[in-house]
Simulated scan of single mutants.
Amino acid sequence: MGPHGKFYWNELLTDDVDKARAFYGATLGWTFSEMPMADGGTYHVAALGEEPVAGLMDKTDLLPPTVPPHWFSYINVDDIHQRLKLLQAAGGHVLREPFEVPGIGCIAIVSDATGAPFGLMTASEG
Rank of each mutant, 00 (worst) to 15 (best):
F72I: 04
P69E: 07
V67A: 08
T42F: 10
V77Q: 00
W71V: 08
T66E: 14
K59F: 05
L63S: 05
P65Y: 09
T60D: 08
A47G: 12
V45M: 13
I75S: 01
T60E: 13
S73R: 04
K59S: 03
L48A: 15
L56H: 12
N76E: 08
G49N: 08
P69W: 01
H44M: 07
Y43A: 04
E51S: 15
V67K: 04
L63C: 05
P52N: 12
V53T: 12
Y74L: 01
Y43N: 05
A47D: 08
S73Y: 10
A47H: 14
T60M: 09
Y43H: 10
A54V: 11
A54M: 09
M57W: 03
I75L: 10
T60L: 09
V77C: 09
D61T: 15
G49R: 03
A54Y: 08
L56N: 04
Y74P: 00
S73T: 13
G49F: 09
A54R: 03
H70A: 13
H70C: 09
S73C: 11
L56T: 08
A46K: 00
V45G: 02
K59L: 07
Y43D: 10
V77N: 01
H44L: 06
Y43M: 11
K59R: 14
E50C: 10
H44Y: 11
D61F: 12
A47P: 11
A54S: 15
P69A: 09
Y74G: 00
Y43E: 07
E50G: 13
N76Q: 03
G49Y: 02
G55V: 01
I75N: 01
Y74T: 05
W71F: 06
E50V: 12
A47R: 14
V53S: 07
E51L: 15
F72H: 11
A46L: 07
P52A: 13
P68I: 08
Y43F: 12
E51C: 13
T42R: 10
P64W: 02
P69D: 08
I75H: 01
Y43Q: 06
P68D: 09
E50F: 11
E50T: 14
L63M: 14
M57H: 06
L63I: 03
Y74S: 01
Y74I: 01
E50M: 11
P68Y: 03
G55Y: 02
M57F: 10
V77A: 02
P68C: 03
L48W: 14
P52G: 06
V53F: 06
I75E: 03
P64Y: 01
D61V: 13
L63D: 02
L48H: 14
V53E: 05
P68S: 13
P69R: 02
L48P: 03
P69Y: 00
H44A: 06
